[in-house]
Design a protein around this nucleic acid. Structure first.
Lengths: 341, 341
DNA sequence: CTGTTAGCGCATTCAT
DNA sequence: ATGAATGCGCTAACAG
């Protein structure tokens, strides 16, 4: 790897001049500029960002931490963030936290050690995120939270309007004639899961339906457990709800697996709607009624806010909390039951 | 952000000593060690990797470049790579190339400028990758190619045994009684698409079936175009094949969309098998017969080889080419046609 | 075992 | 408009 010094020697100028033509911050005569660019090409010179960052203490790199990139929602968020970063001349690196607070601590530490200019964070499900976030911010690195918001901390954030989105989905099920509607949530330690549950409550209440605690099923993010938990509730035909709403893609998939295990058909035997697209609805059956989050936009907006913070355009602005609307895609699984019609 | 100097001052030792306790490479007395670790905690000190790397010219960071993280195959590869990297105390950052040679040049340049210790590359579909790879290797950064292999260059690589995998899928269709079998490929400029086509040819030939050029359909990676191309071929009922094999997940999805547009049912009107899982087969219909690649393993193996190269365990070893076997998941879409039975 | 110091590659004053 | 010199934070050699 050639250095700026070698370029300077070949072009027969000083390192300062090379630096100037690269940064463009100081005028350089055409002749020297040409000599320098030629030398750069000849040596296949790539400026050492490491050295540059050590000097400037800025890396133009953003980090994004997500629980698990194999959950389809997150790559979309990342793509949105990447696009926004690119537009403003930043790069984005993505890492997984495995939804583990400990691993999250590790990757955040990595990002700090790498001196990324800012961090986009989808917090892990466990405890301890607040301390981690506080430390990072104290060290001067801006953090924006996406999708999942930590509680008891004032921080820039971008996510869907969870309460309204769940309300919309459940209200739709109600409008299709269903009354006994169950909800399968992720861990309720997560604020956004709580909010989605709240939306469910709101929708029922507004429709004059009683909220039945036995129809609120809390799960986690482990596929087998979700399926087991859901299956247990569905087994008893007497108690079985007319419709089921799940608050995220992972639990949604668990619902489908549980229905499959129990030999239940949707929508004939039970209606179903979920947060997050589970598959390509055009070509696969059942076509699932879905509350679709603007994943790309969430990533994009969050990144814009983050870069604003970094570049001090928003130094004294108070916390920004963006709540984006979700979209309801009505499909087959929420059709009214035959015997209700 | 505190520095090693501040830690040294607070612990009342020299910076050298602090460095020694952090690296563990040089013995330090228990007393000083304790003082130092306390100071580190007190100051919430995070070593500046930037400065360290400038000194050591090693970053312990690996980069992986994939065409598009939203294609489910790639996150799995990345996870495998991440796990392998973590085991050997490296970190992994992932970036997208958008399957564009130009963008690939940009991100590779970024990775070089960041001085990553090694690069995992799934080459973009267009031309120009070879020059890019050659330059990187000349600069001393090891590169391992995954999934897609560039031609005319000797380089470490890990991918599925494309020819055998396609052969397996097509042979299965033949064994189900199909004779007129079409293949929908991605761009044949890609070596692995060529190999998969070769596997198709081999399977037909071995079965004594003629290879019909009008049944070889070449597409690209653009969803709408794939659907259009496939739809055009399927429209004519006279010429329609009995079965269709697609060589990757993106074209596979295009097939399903085209079938949907044409109102064709699989397997009743046309059998179908594809490379790569398109959805969660347990719960969605149609359940598609699939050639499943060991995506996680591909990432894992490639990363191991890369780190071996980096750490010189394999300095003079010749090029390593790993070919992993695929698995055939036989499901509904490849059932024999009713009128054939 | 512990302290001192040179220098990694670059951006940035400050001279000229 | 160009060049020379300084130091970012750290590691590794060396000295003690």
């Amino acid at each position: 790897m050639s250095t700026i010094k070698e370029v300077a020697r070949l072009a027969n100028v000083s390192v300062g001049t090379v630096s100037h033509v690269i940064s463009g911050s100081v005028p350089v005569s055409d002749q020297l500029r040409r000599r320098v660019t030629e030398a750069i090409r000849a040596l296949d010179y790539h400026p050492n960002h490491i050295a540059r960052s050590l000097k400037t203490s800025r890396t133009r790199i953003l980090g994004i931490v997500v629980p698990d990139m194999t959950i389809p929602f997150f790559p979309q968020v990342i793509r949105g963030a990447e696009a926004a970063a690119r537009k403003r001349n930043y790069y984005l690196v993505a890492v997984n936290s495995d939804d583990s607070s400990n691993r999250q601590r590790e990757v955040l530490s990595l990002l700090r050690s790498q001196r990324v200019d800012g961090i986009l964070l989808v917090v892990a499900a466990g405890q301890g995120s607040i301390t981690q976030i506080t430390q990072i911010r104290q060290s001067g690195i801006p953090v924006v939270c996406l999708d999942r918001l930590p509680e008891n901390i004032s921080i820039d954030s971008v996510c869907v309007d969870d309460c309204a989105a769940a309300d919309m989905g459940v209200s739709h099920l109600i409008s299709m004639g269903h009354q006994r509607i169950a909800i399968l949530t992720g861990p309720l330690t997560l604020k956004n899961e709580q909010d989605r549950l709240q939306g469910y409550n709101n929708a029922l209440t507004r429709a004059g339906l009683a909220v039945d605690a036995t129809l609120i099923w809390e799960a986690n993010f482990h596929q087998e457990e979700i399926t087991r938990i859901c299956g247990e509730h569905l087994r008893d035909a007497q108690r079985r709800p007319a419709a089921l709403f799940s608050t995220n893609g992972v639990t949604g998939l668990g619902v489908l697996k549980a229905l499959h295990v129990c030999g239940l058909n949707t929508p004939d035997e039970i209606a179903f709607a979920t947060f997050d697209e589970l598959t390509i609805e055009e070509v696969f059956r059942p076509a699932i009624t879905t509350v679709v989050q603007p994943a790309y936009d969430i990533g994009h907006r969050a990144t814009d806010i983050l870069i604003n913070r970094i570049e001090r355009c928003m130094l004294d602005a108070s916390t920004v909390s963006i709540r984006l609307p979700a979209t309801l895609k009505i499909r087959e699984t929420s059709l009214a039951l035959a015997h209700v019609l």
